[in-house]
């Protein structure tokens, strides 16, 4: 039984249907990558899980309990933390206040202090800047803060939305190294990325979305070897070529 099971999820923004029946599951202790172009519905899947978007149909089962349609605070308490796209730190609050706010659902003060130390070990730069306002951090540091803040809730499942967005290549490597580390510590992660290369490197399993549907799913190493994925998501030109060259290739799903 997977930690998270989503079946036939449908959601829309007004008249625009964003999800047209998405099913996926995330096994405990694994990293699952959700890939796709802009507007494919990846972020909507995450928002539906965390309760910010209320899905119209379908079920979301987390650790054996249906959580679809619950309020976001209940879902965080259930053990899901969402690191949103664009980081969404509280820019006028200090780094430390941001982290404390991340531990909002918890009451165990001693353990919170210990977790704060752990987070500072993970990202030492945050310790140095703990009294500064989050708005004064660089983009990469804010991403570190956003991840740390989510960790402070001690989630069972982390939803990471485009953690590499707008970051320098070196920082992208650093963030992904942290993601791989988190998994070694037993964290389960659902990762949305446009940087398919990096995502499939750390992930165990991957789903590919297009216009609100899952069009392909497989183990990450199999996806990396798939010619269509290589051409359209990994940017390896001509990988899927066989026979006469076409001006624009058609996808094979």
């Amino acid at each position: 039984m997977a930690l998270l099971d989503i079946a036939n999820l449908e959601a829309s923004y007004g008249p625009v249907q964003a999800l047209r029946g998405v099913s996926l599951s995330v096994a405990e202790g694994s990293i699952v990558a959700l890939l796709g172009a802009n507007g494919a519905g990846k972020t909507t899947v995450l928002k539906s899980i965390s309760g910010v978007v209320v899905p119209e149909r379908g079920s979301i089962v987390f650790a054996g309990a249906a959580i679809s349609g619950l309020y976001p605070d209940r879902i965080v308490t259930a053990g899901i933390s969402h690191v949103p796209e664009g980081r969404e730190t509280f820019t006028a609050r200090t780094v430390q206040e941001n982290l404390t706010l991340g531990s909002w659902p918890r009451q165990d003060r001693g353990a919170i202090a210990a977790d704060l130390d752990r987070v500072f070990e993970l990202f030492p730069i945050l310790r140095d800047r703990r009294t500064q306002r989050a708005g004064q951090l660089s983009g990469g540091q804010q991403q570190m803060l956003a991840i740390s803040r989510a960790l402070m809730a001690r989630p069972k499942l982390m939803l990471l939305d485009e953690p590499s967005l707008g970051l320098a290549p070196l920082l992208v490597r650093e963030i992904f190294a942290v993601i791989a580390n988190l998994r070694q510590d037993g964290m389960t992660i659902l990762l949305v990325e446009q940087n398919a290369n990096m995502a499939l490197e750390v992930a165990d399993y991957g789903y590919i979305m297009e216009t609100g549907r899952i069009v392909m799913e497989d183990r990450a190493d199999v996806l990396r070897g798939n010619p269509t994925v290589q051409e359209f998501y990994l940017g390896i030109a001509g990988a899927a070529e066989a026979g006469p060259r076409r001006y624009k290739r058609r996808k094979q799903w």
């Binding site: 309760g51 910010v52 976001p72 605070d73 609050r93 803040r149 989510a150 809730a153």
Partner: peptide, 25 residues
């Protein structure tokens, strides 16, 4: 106070407050 800081954070970024599990309502 914890709740006072949460109130300021909510007023600054309501969406992020939802993501933190702060009971915005």
């Amino acid at each position: 106070t914890r709740i006072g800081i949460a109130m300021q954070a909510t007023s600054e970024n309501q969406l992020a407050a939802y993501y933190m599990g702060i009971p915005v309502r």
